[in-house]
Each structure stands twice: as structure tokens, then as C-alpha cells.
Nucleic acid binder design. Structure first.
Lengths: 109, 109
DNA sequence: ATACTATGTGATTATATAATCACATAGTAA
DNA sequence: TTACTATGTGATTATATAATCACATAGTAT
């Protein structure tokens, strides 16, 4: 891969990571892993304002993480690809490793 | 897991994702996957200012993604855990899926 | 028609992030 | 000692992000 393509890849990777890098958006993803939901229910579940949730959903749609469809008055959001959930697993794995290191350190004191 | 713990987990997950969500930081990680490097060489490799690179490195150290050691005048940085690289693979996988969807769409036109 | 509900968006404000320059510090070399 | 190199950090500025409120729109129900 040449330098230009590599930098483009880094940009896109950063974009997708940034789209996930917010506690509320992670909460939304974690909720949607069990199935599609309307904005109203999502907002209730993550305990945040509808308009704010709507904005976070739009961010994730615009970078291809979520997709949505209209159903009467409601708009239903769902994961666009299951692989999105892998990010959350990676994060959990890293956090577990960090916790283990801390335990080791604590025992060494 | 109770609600409070869950929200703490989301916070930590978001933190680690945010620490990776920048093109320059991804470039640095991609460089460090092949072995530890000093700030000077990293800066040269990613073609950015030393002080700026230093700041990005500090961000990743502070959230447990990188670690460093002094070697004379130099400070050598390395990945703290290989699992960090999994994030980049996840991102690449997602981008490939998106690209495939676009190809399908293109063919359908 | 009116009233209601779900959603999205403009405007605003507060805060966070990023890049740059100048400078301080720490170690090296002569 | 002086000169040099690698690094980190304070100060500044520009930009991005997030949250909130008010309002507009679209669909539903009566």
C-alpha cells in the first residue's frame, strides 16, 4: 500500500472509532445488539433526551455503523453490521488486561 | 451487572476508543506494531511535529494503550498490549464490509 | 378539521481536542 | 565548563463535539 492510501485508511479507521467513542453511543450499541429499536425506546433505555439521542444516532448512521427505517411515526434503528460489536469486545478485553495488571501490582506491594 | 457498573464500563470503553480515534494515533500504533520506537523516529515516520507527536503519545500512555521507558536521551514507546491492534483489525473489517456494500449497490444500478 | 406523538434540526453555549510556537529540562559529547 | 540533542510542556488559537431548548415536520387518531 502506498503512503497516500495508507493515510486514507488511517482517516477512515479513525472516523469509525470516533463514531463509537462516546459512552452514550456505546450504551446505544449495547442496547441494539439485541434487536432494532425506535428512538423513543432507545432514549428511555439510555436515560437521555430524545433530541440528544437523535443526534448521536445520526452520527452513527452517517459513518455506516447504524441504519434506520421508518415505521409510521417511529424511526427504527439497528446495527448495520454485527462486526461493530467486535469493538466493544476488544475494549472489554483491553480493560480486563489492565485490571489484571493492577491486581498483579497490588499483590506485589 | 447493575446499571451503575454498566455505565462505568461504557465510560471506560469510550475512553479507550477515544484514545485511538485519531489518524495520527492510528499511524503511530501501526508503526509500533513492528516494535518499540523513540519519539524522534515516530515523528519522522508519521511526518508530524515532535511536540505534537509527544502529546499524542502521552494521551495513549495515560489510558494504558502505550508504555515507555527512558534510554539515555531517548524515550522509547511501545504497545502495552497486543490486543490494541485488534481495534485496527475490527475497523478494517468494517470498512471492507462497507466497501462491499457499495460495490453491490453500484452493480445494481 | 384539530389534537397528539415521534422525530429531527437550528441556534446557542460550554467544553474538549488539536496544532503550533517558544521555552525548559535532562542527558550526551567535546 | 559549553554546546548539542531529544523530549515534554505552558500558552495560545482554531476547530470539533456535546447538550439543551425551542421549534418545525410528518404521521396518527378523533
Amino acid at each position: 500500500m502506498d503512503k497516500k492510501s495508507r493515510n486514507m485508511l488511517y482517516d477512515r479507521q479513525a472516523e469509525i472509532l470516533k463514531a463509537l467513542a462516546h459512552p452514550l453511543r456505546i450504551a446505544i450499541l449495547d442496547y441494539l445488539k439485541d434487536g432494532e429499536q425506535c428512538v423513543c425506546d432507545i432514549a428511555k433505555h439510555v436515560a437521555s433526551e430524545r433530541s440528544n439521542v437523535s443526534r448521536h444516532l445520526a452520527i452513527m448512521v452517517s459513518c455506516g455503523v447504524l441504519e434506520c427505517r421508518k415505521d409510521g411515526l417511529n424511526v427504527i434503528y439497528r446495527l448495520k453490521a454485527r462486526c461493530i460489536l467486535d469493538f466493544l469486545e476488544c475494549a472489554t478485553t483491553c480493560l480486563k488486561q489492565q485490571a489484571n495488571e493492577n491486581v498483579k501490582l497490588l499483590r506485589a506491594i
